[in-house]
Design a protein around this nucleic acid. Structure first.
Lengths: 106, 106
DNA sequence: TTACTGTATAATGGTATGATTATACACTTG
DNA sequence: CAAGTGTATAATCATACCATTATACAGTAA
């Protein structure tokens, strides 16, 4: 029996937050970034090479993912490395692949 | 080791499809609808009452979810009943709750 | 210091999204 | 048939998003 059926409604602000986070993942380029990262830590320039668009475009999409807490970043010298912020998010990405791209089970 | 690391890139069209489906879920009202449905089959008028906006607005959002294959619908007399289309999508919704609204474990 | 590399931000303009309103369609009942 | 109920669609306008371009910032190397 679900929470909804048990009369425990999810708060509007939680729904809002969740929707905004999911929306952050709901863009082809950003989804590609997430799938490319997997559980690795990758520098911006590598992401640019792997995903294939302009550095500026990648940087803006990375900022969106970082601002929503999907990605975490670490600076080393003049490079910045990005990674998926936590294990649960990583599992969610895996499950998204399962549901929408069954051919590519993680 | 992920598919990406194994050099098995996900096709652009698969990423596009997945992103469009996820985007369909990435709206507060639509996420609320999905959480409200859970594993039940609910009529449009009930959804309108439970979620709380205009019938027209709900109908448009239901159409978006239906068109992306997230929801399935069944007509009975002059009512239409909606449900989450398959078990995997249902699990994905559950996991989204886990990740973004940990207080409401399914 | 200057020059260079790597990354982030600002500004712009075209496109997509979304809530509202009004209307149309499908079905049922009288 | 008409009237009523339940649902879907069309039209509108305001807003949000996105890719591109140019520029700024941080760090390194000479």
């Amino acid at each position: 029996m679900s929470s909804e059926q048990m009369g425990l409604p999810i708060k509007d602000e939680d729904i809002e937050r969740a929707a905004m986070s999911i929306k952050a993942m709901a863009h082809p380029l950003r989804l590609r970034i997430l799938c490319t990262l997997g559980d690795r830590e990758v520098s911006v320039q590598e992401i640019v090479e792997l995903v294939g668009t302009s550095q500026s475009n990648i940087s803006q999409h990375l900022a969106i993912l970082r601002d929503k807490g999907i990605l975490a970043s670490r600076k080393d010298a003049n490079r910045v490395y990005y990674r998926v912020s936590d294990a649960r998010t990583l599992r969610l990405i895996s499950m998204m692949k399962d549901v929408f791209c069954p051919a590519f089970g993680s």
